[in-house]
Amino acid sequence: MSRHFKEAVIKGIFAAFAFVSVLTLALIVVFLFREGIPIFKEVSVSNFIFGKEWYPTYDPPSYGIWPLIIGSAVVTLFSSLLAVPLGVLSAVYIAEIAPSSIRDIAKSIIELLAGIPSVVLGFFGMVVVAPFLQETFDLPTGLNIVNASVILAIMAVPTISSISEDALYAVPQEFKDASYALGATKYETIIKVIIPAALSGISTAVILGMARAIGETMVVLMVAGGAAAVPESIFDSVRPMPASIAAEMGEAPFGGGHYHALFATGIVLFMLTLIFNLIADYISRKFREVGSATL
């Protein structure tokens, strides 16, 4: 009896801990919606999302976050273009090609990269990358899409690389043995057997890396330039959503339209990261039955 009781208590304790994080998320979502929804009394949902003018402090204010959404999308897209090949290929190298001495060094350095505070990377982008870009390409400004994408890519590489690496390690040895037995070279084995078998894990890695880039705040606040206009070239400044929220929240009058609009921007951002996570989840589930080689 007492053994069963103990068991039940322990079960309860673990459940309580698990529910703390569920509850926290639930409360945050409730709060986010409660503070964000009131803006839609002042502006319609489509005017909010597709409106091209963001002038929250003027009279009358315009609450259109389309330029901010485009800003987020553009920097996320370009940073992925840089980070995906870098992250995936370095994972392939570390997991399959590198001798163990180099593997250990490379792996720990990439993991160290994940530990650099984003504000440090932002500062680096501001005082090193920006002047470099400006002088090299003779641009009016170095705080632009390219700069933000490069710095975000540096942040996303460790995420993409370490999750891809786990996926590659999970590919069963038999697959490789079979490939070699058929006379395939190492290169052919990697390209035609290992990567396809690890694809769902790699896709998950890519999407989580992108989610990291879209939610990152400090870097885009410091190096994206902050112009709330739809960009016309990759050297234009943009104002991604997290930057806008971080820069303006401190000064938005509590309970006013601007305050609610920033929370509503937070809802949009939350939805986007949620979608990214759902896609990642879907991909890793969908390909689970294919073999024993999924994450």
């Binding site: 003018e53 963001w54 002038y55 003027y58 330029p67 400004t141 705080l143 606040l221 330039g225 902050g226 112009a227 709330a228 206009a229 234009d236 400044s237 104002r239 971080a246 820069a247």
Partner: peptide
């Protein structure tokens, strides 16, 4: 209104 192309610093 300030031009939307203006850069913003915090």
């Amino acid at each position: 209104k300030v031009s939307p192309r203006a850069q913003m610093q915090a």
